[in-house]
Every structure is written in C-alpha cells, then in structure tokens.
Design a binder for these strands. Structure first.
Length: 584
RNA sequence: UACCCCGUGGUGUAACGGUAACACAGCGCCCUUUGGAGGCGUUAUUCUUGGUUCAAAUCCAAGCGGGGUAGCCA
C-alpha cells in the first residue's frame, strides 16, 4: 500500500537522528488545534504528519486544545475536532494517541516525564483531549519565575503604543521596574485588579532585535472573560508563544511541528526555554509548509464566510474541504492519509493540484468499490423484438478488481433506460455510443441497434426503439462480436428513483484568493441534483460502503437518506477521456 | 522597509559532492463487455551569474523571483 512505503522527509530525518544519537528515547509529537472552528484538509496533513511520526517511531502524539484566548474559543468545537481526528486516524494510529490520562493533568516534575498513550476504546463517549488551559497554574508559576529572574516586566502602555514602540525599537518607560514591583503587579493582574488592556506582562529581551518577536513580546494580557474550559477562574490569559512553548515542555514533547508562519517565532520559543533554564530534553520546533490546494480556499476565516453567507449548506457540506465535509461526501480516512503521504512535507510553499486528491480517492475506490448500474439522466429504450412479458436475470460482476466480490443478478426486460449522454442523434466524430442505425453493447447484456428516434411535439426525444441481437448475450453465439461502445442501463419496470447530488469544484479559478476577492470566483454550478434510476440491488446499499455507478463515478450514501428515499453523493467522477475528446 | 525562509519537468516530491528519479496531470499507442482499470512510450541545459572542486541540483557569494513575520490572534 502506498501509505506503507517509507516516507522520508526532512522532519522524519531529524527525528530518526535524534533517536539514533540517543537525544530522545521516545518520540512525542502533538496536534494542537485552537477550538475556534472546524478542521480542514490542511489540518489533515498536520494530523497525518504528527500521528504518522508517532506511529512510525513507536511514540505518542498528544492532542491538545490550544485554548489560550477565551474570547474566540468554544467548547462545541472541541467535540467536532475530536470526532474528526479520531475518524482520520482510526485503525491507523489508535495506539499512538495521547489524551488526558484519567483526568490527570500532565505535570513535568522530572526529566524522564513521558506522556502515555491511551488506547482507543471505540466507545461512544469521546475521550478528553489535553488542554493548554489545564496548565494555566503551571504557566503562571513559570511567569512568576521569569519575572523573579528579572527577565519580564509589567508594562502599562496601550496596545497602539506597544506596537509603535516595537516598530521603532524603543523601550517602554516601564521596562526597568524593580523585580518586586513587577511581582506585585503581576499578582494583582491575576487577582483582577485592573481592567482589560490596562497592563501586560512582557518578556525583557531586546527592543533592537532584528526579529520583532524578540522585541519584548507580550506574555500575558488581561481579559475579564469566561473561558470555555476554566470558567471564571482567570482574569489574565497567556499568549501563544508562552503557552505553547511551555505546554510542549510540560508534556515532554520532543518535536513541535508547526507551519511556516511560526518560523520567526522559533528564537522566542528557544529564548523561553533558556530564560527559565529548563532541563533537557527540551522540545524542538520544526516548521513545514502548510497545504495549499488549487480551486479552493483553506483558511478558517474564508471557510466560515462560505458557511455564514450561504454559499454552502454548512461546515459539512460535501463541497467543503473540511474534514467533516470530506467525510460526508464519502471520502475515506485511508484515501486522505494516502493523499497526505503523497504530497510530502517540505518548506517550499507549494500549491498542490486537487487532481492528486482525486487520484488518491479513485485509486482506492477502484480496488474497493462495489459496481452497480444507475442512470442519471434517463432515456427510455424499447426493444421491439424482445418479448413484452419476459424478464431475464443476468449476471453482473460486483468488482472486476476483486474476484472475491462475486456477482449479482440484474433484471433485464423489454423497456430500459440508458443515459442521455450515451445517445446522439447527430454524433460527433469518434462517438462510440448509441446513434441512429448504430449498435452498442449493453453491459452484461445484449447488443442493440437503434432503429427509430421517437419525439414529442416539442421535438424532444421520448424513446428509442431498438432491436436486440438475441444471440449476443454473454456466452451467446454472437457475444464476441466487435462493437465499439458499451453502455450502462437499467430495466425500466425494475428500477427505482434516488436523489443524486453531483458536485463540482467550489471555485472557478486555481487561486480564488489571489486577487483578494475569493467570493467573486465562486462556482455557482458546484451542485447539481438529479433523480436517478437505479438497479434493484442498490436498495440494500450501506452508508459505509462505496459504490461505483458504472461509467459514471464513485458514489456514497448521504446522511440525508431516509427509508423512503436514498440520497447519493458523487464522491468523484471516473476519469473521462471521452469528455476531453468531446471538448475539442 | 526590516528580518527570516524557500527556488529541481505543467504540478508536487526524490537524489545527502560522482553526472537528474518517482507520482500526478497532459499527449500518443496497445488492450478493454466501464472511452474505467491496466500496459508501453513521451515531457528538465535543476532561477541567473560568478566562485570552490577532478567533479556541483547539492558547498560559497551576489542578483532575481516567491512566501512569511512586524495583534494585548493562534
């Protein structure tokens, strides 16, 4: 399997070296989402990287909610994130997930601290992730320690002034406050004595540093806000750099993998570990390029606009590249993992073609999907020389790629449906399908010839009257006759109707946000709903099964399905070389 | 503007100083009771210029191009 071939990237090389040299005995990575939105395929890349490394090197990947900003985060997102992560790694890295250990918060009390993996019990109750906010006490103690060491101070400048001073490299007049005063002020900040924005705790580094993140970054800000996880306990909240670095340290993370935009934060990450003189082994931050895909947008901000402004039906709209959208559409975790594996991991900010994702899906589904016959846009075909009351049960192969999938019976009768696209009254060149006086094979059945095109008053085609070569059935005398085209069909009296949702890309251009106005490139025809005619055996279709409607694509049952009416999602079309030829 | 990072076929990745490999996409042919799948073939003076070396995609320098950062967001 593709995902089993050994992937080697610069991060895995570093990890392997750290194991070889004995710097670490056991690898601990982490996936640290902020619970302020749904996970998307870019997060999937990160999940596959972090859990993949834990899995390959026999380590652990902690899942930690990076919840340091009470005004932006909500508990409901925690549930969706957990669901998405577990779905994506299920059956693959279950043994490597690091969760909250029986309600015990990790506390690094010794150098050999190690986070334990918790077995995925597959219970209905979602296990609890780790939370940065569980370390708030710890983080505060570290802040006191930093202040005591004279490496931090309480500042009173306004946000605007702080920005301005940072830009020009000027020191705050509060910078050289005595340690005792800083300690006192910090304690009073914590006690809630000051209003929002009145004071901050700042690291005392170097206001002239070329890297602006070293120009006395803010470590704590005052926020009189309720936190989704810690409630009303805190009035000061740590900033990302402080919280993330020390959470990594507390959990014994060995490799802290993040995206490129945090590259300039790394000196600060290391400064924090140094300033506190924290004992080895220390975590190491390594950055990689985030996932970019063509014909889509990836940021949470833009995805949320698509939802709120009604361009899609929700976070799990099958057109959305959120994990929940992909899941609903019918993409499997394994296909997503294969995709993540195939795009690789580098520091080059690339733009990947969505075609690669489609390929990963097709490649897997070709091996696993059950073949069925369905007609999306029916045209009636009447076989004039076939007995009116006769019904044959023909053998059809369930999956030519998998002999064990066996066969099934498909009813055949005098009246059928074929797809409108498989008939042309005035055929273009190289049209191998049905045309007046032309022949075509009905898959698993007979060769037919079109004798007559019947139209209504409006000139629309009502039915095709055809004759069937009665000897041409599989195993028959003329079954091996050379006929250029083969077409799918369904017996009219036996077929049943279903709703089928056909999806196209959400945007019309490869880089919708290149000009800063992605909404004007939205594809208004990204969803088409049709009523399809399906062969009877499809009545038993299962939600977790993937189907190929022959010659059309791969389909999956949508959760809107009821006992009365099935709703299908087209996950991806089949490769269609004829469509390309026809275009020219 | 300052600082940091990155430049290998159309796209993405590999080659770890020894003469450019793989996947996807495209195109052509073969095969086919899915115009699917499969098989075969085809696409690169490794951004530029200089330097080091017997030897450079790999090391060094400059230029050019792209990306990131400059929230009391993460």
């Amino acid at each position: 399997m593709a995902e089993e071939t050994r992937p080697t990237d610069f991060i895995r090389e570093i990890v392997a070296e750290h194991l070889r040299s004995g710097k670490h005995q056991r690898i601990v990575t982490r996936f640290p989402p902020e619970p302020n939105g749904y996970l998307h395929i870019g997060h999937a890349k990160s999940i596959c990287l972090n859990f993949g490394i834990a899995r390959e090197f026999g380590g652990v990947c902690n899942i930690r909610m990076d919840d340091t900003n009470p005004t932006k985060e909500e508990a409901e997102y925690v549930q969706s994130i957990m669901r998405d992560v577990r779905w994506l790694i299920d059956g693959w890295a279950d043994q490597n997930i690091g969760l909250k250990h029986f309600d015990t918060v990790p506390t690094r009390v010794s150098d050999d601290f190690q986070q334990s993996a918790i077995r995925n019990q597959k219970s209905e109750i979602l296990p609890e992730p780790l939370y940065t906010s569980d370390y708030f006490d710890n983080l505060y103690q570290y802040a006191v320690e930093l202040t005591r060491r004279g490496r931090a101070y309480v500042d009173e400048m306004s946000p605007e002034q702080t920005d301005e001073y940072r830009r020009i490299g000027k020191e705050s007049s509060f910078r050289d406050r005595p340690v005792d005063e800083n300690l006192d002020l910090l304690a009073r900040m914590k006690a809630g004595e000051f209003p929002d924005g009145a004071k901050t705790l700042r690291a005392k580094i170097d206001m002239q540093a070329p890297n602006v993140w070293l120009r006395d970054p803010v470590l704590y800000r005052i926020r009189h806000a309720e936190h989704h996880h810690t409630g009303a306990k805190w009035r000061i909240y740590p900033m990302y750099d402080w919280a993330h670095t020390l959470s990594d340290y507390i959990e014994g993370i060995t490799h802290s993998l993040c995206t490129l935009e945090f590259e300039v934060h790394r000196p600060l990450y290391e400064w924090i570990l140094d300033a506190l003189e924290l004992s080895a082994p220390r975590p190491r931050q390594i950055e990689f390029a985030r996932l970019n895909l063509d014909y889509t947008v990836m940021s949470k901000r833009k995805l949320i606009q698509l939802v709120h402004e009604g361009f899609v039906t929700g976070w799990d709209d099958p057109r959305m590249l959120t994990i929940s959208g992909l899941r609903r559409r019918g993409v499997t975790p394994s296909a997503l993992r294969t995709f993540a594996h195939e795009i690789g991991v580098t520091k080059y900010p690339s733009l990947n073609e969505t075609a690669l994702l489609e390929h990963a899906i097709r490649n897997e589904f070709n091996r696993t999907a059950i073949r069925r016959l369905a007609v999306l846009k029916p045209i009636k075909v009447v076989l004039t020389n076939y007995p009116a009351e006769q019904v044959e049960q023909l053998d059809a192969i369930n999956n030519p790629e998998d002999p064990n999938a066996g066969t099934r019976k498909v009813p055949f009768s005098r009246e059928l449906y074929i797809d409108a696209q498989d008939f042309a009254e005035v055929p273009p060149p190289k049209f191998f399908r049905l045309k007046p006086a032309g022949e075509v094979r009905l898959k698993y059945a007979y060769i037919i010839r079109c004798d007559e095109v019947v139209k209504n008053a409006a000139g629309e085609i009502i039915e095709l009257r055809c004759t069937v070569d009665l000897e041409s059935k599989t195993g028959g005398a003329t079954s091996n006759r050379k006929v250029k085209g083969t077409v799918h069909w369904v017996s009219a009296p036996h077929a049943f109707d279903t709703e089928v949702r056909l999806y196209d890309r959400l945007f019309t251009v490869p880089e919708p946000d290149a000009d800063g106005d992605f909404k004007k490139h939205i594809n208004r025809n990204s969803l088409k709903i049709v009523t399809a005619k399906c062969e009877p055996s499809l009545r038993d279709a299962q939600p977790d099964e993937r189907y190929q409607f022959e010659r059309l694509g791969y389909f999956s049952l949508d959760l809107d399905s009821t006992t009365d009416r099935q709703v299908w999602n087209r996950v991806v079309t089949l490769r269609d070389t004829w469509a390309k030829v026809a275009k020219r």
